[in-house]
Amino acid sequence: MKIFRYAFQTVFKSLWREKWINLLTILSISIGLSLLTSFIMITLNMDSVLQRWAKNFGIVVYLDEDINKAEENTLKNRFLKDKDIIEVKYISKEKALKELHKTLGANALVLEGLDENPLPSSFELRLKSSLIEPGLVKNKAAQIERISGVDEVQYGEKWLSSLYAVSKTMKLGAIIIGGAIFIAITFITYSTIKIFFYRRKEEIETLKLLGATRSFIRLPFLLEGLIIGLLGGIMSSLVIFGIYSFTSLKMVEFLPSINLVMASLPFQVYLIVPLAGAVVSIVGSFIAVGKIRY
């Protein structure tokens, strides 16, 4: 506590004396953090949409024409035991035809006059999510195709690879842009604290000669950085809260189904953002103060 007493006094004086620079810094940090958070939220929302789509992804295993009931059951058991497969659905020839009827609707007439059901029976398999990746699915499909009794395996190969590509680019973009914003925020605090440090250079020289330790000299700058970052973060939280409440309200009004798409903003975000601001700013201040040599 005694270590912080003088540092706090120094910081509050400095916060007040340099209020315009500080305010500007806090604003910049809050803008940066708001951008970062919106960006992360957008990415997460989009990703959750992709995830939901991916969940519906299944592969269809068509069985040989001449397969019998017992063989079908062996296959089913084999699929059920497979750890990569989380759901197995059997579709008999008859059911397949019925569904075709349903889909064709009025056009089902084309099916009249068929004296034999031309459709094969099949299994619809859903793979565990970690496997939903173009290469892995391809391998799995090939593996299943080699099993005796299996005629053909089909899945939306194009669809899967484009979904995968979109998700991958999005993640990469998120990392790059997010990282850039992070560095920018660090730099904002860095330059502000650097200015303060240079302004007090003479004083710091004297402090050193009087026997002040490194931590005594550093602490006020780190504290100031921390407070600036924290305030920037709190401001950003308020902005995010405002924007989020407003947009979700408007969006639901115009596009009720958007609710399904918008992942809710977890309340932790309002704590994490100020914390992130504080941490990033402290890092910036630490770099700004640099190594103190006697």
């Binding site: 003479e202 004083e203 020289e205 004297t206 050193k208 000669l209 009087l210 026997g211 002040a212 330790t213 490194r214 040599r293 006697y294």
Partner: peptide, 24 residues
């Protein structure tokens, strides 16, 4: 060491030729 210099200086009071007062 660099970091022990402050502890030496705590034992030494200095009247600087150029004062080194803080004018603020």
């Amino acid at each position: 060491k660099q970091r022990t210099i402050p502890f030496l200086r705590r034992n030494v009071g200095i009247v600087f030729q150029d004062f080194r007062l803080l004018y603020n």
